[in-house]
Simulated assay, not measured.
Amino acid sequence: MLDALEVVTTVVVGLMVGVEVSVAFVINPILGALPEDSGQLGRSRGGRMLGAVMPVWYIGSLALVAAWAVAGWHHDGTGLVVIAGTLLILSVVMSLLLLVPINNQSKTWTPENRPEDWKEQTRRWDRFHYVRVAVIIGAFTLLVAALA
């Protein structure tokens, strides 16, 4: 049973990391290169869609990691799982304090109602997101190491 939990947790966290890496290094650069208002409209749509899905994914990943840590408490690698869980908690806190407030505003923007500093707010979200991506990559790496 523990083996299945370890694999499911690693896959779920790995897929989450993949989506976030894709947003940071593929999707947002593509949207940023689109002409006129297309990129901003795309980011608003992405903010609404991913803003609904990612909280469940982050909390679900954290719950799976916590379950793994509890179920495998006396097994090798549990310390790595606990550290990975701590990094996931950090990523949730970062999200709630830094990224969600910007996302909640930007997902409603249109070319007609966006603030004058919308580009700076978008760049600030991107910078915070890069740090969050690094944190969750670290968590994922620790989970993979705990499997070995």
Rank of each mutant, 00 (worst) to 15 (best):
A145Q: 09
S91V: 01
V11W: 07
D117N: 14
G77Q: 02
P35L: 01
L87K: 01
I137W: 04
S106I: 11
G39S: 01
I59V: 15
S38F: 05
V144R: 06
L98T: 05
M54P: 03
A67W: 01
H74T: 05
T110R: 00
A66E: 09
F128L: 13
G79R: 10
L80T: 13
G60A: 13
F25I: 00
E120K: 11
L15D: 00
A4M: 02
D3P: 14
G85N: 12
Q105G: 15
N28I: 00
P111L: 03
S106A: 14
V131L: 02
G60N: 00
V65I: 15
W109T: 02
S61L: 01
Q121K: 12
I137Y: 04
R127Q: 10
I27W: 01
T10H: 13
P35A: 01
G60D: 06
P101C: 14
E36S: 13
I27M: 05
V26D: 13
G46L: 02
V56G: 00
T78M: 13
T10A: 14
R48N: 05
V23R: 05
E6I: 10
L142P: 04
G18V: 14
R123N: 02
Q40F: 14
V92R: 06
H74G: 11
D126L: 14
S61H: 06
G42C: 02
A63T: 08
T86A: 07
V131E: 06
R45P: 09
V8L: 14
R114Q: 04
V26N: 09
R114M: 03
L64Y: 13
G42S: 00
T9P: 08
A145D: 11
V21W: 01
M16K: 08
H75W: 14
A139L: 07
Q40W: 06
L96S: 15
V135I: 10
V144Q: 00
G18L: 14
R123H: 15
L5D: 06
H74C: 07
R114A: 05
L96P: 04
R132M: 04
L87E: 08
G60S: 10
W109D: 12
V131P: 06
V93C: 06
V100Q: 09
L50F: 04
D37A: 02
R124V: 14
G77S: 10
W109P: 02
N113C: 11
V144D: 05
G60E: 03
L31D: 00
G138S: 01
V65S: 05
G72T: 03
D76E: 12
N104I: 09
V70R: 15
L15C: 12
I137K: 11
T141N: 09
V7M: 06
T108W: 15
H74V: 13
A52D: 13
T10K: 10
V12A: 15
A52Q: 13
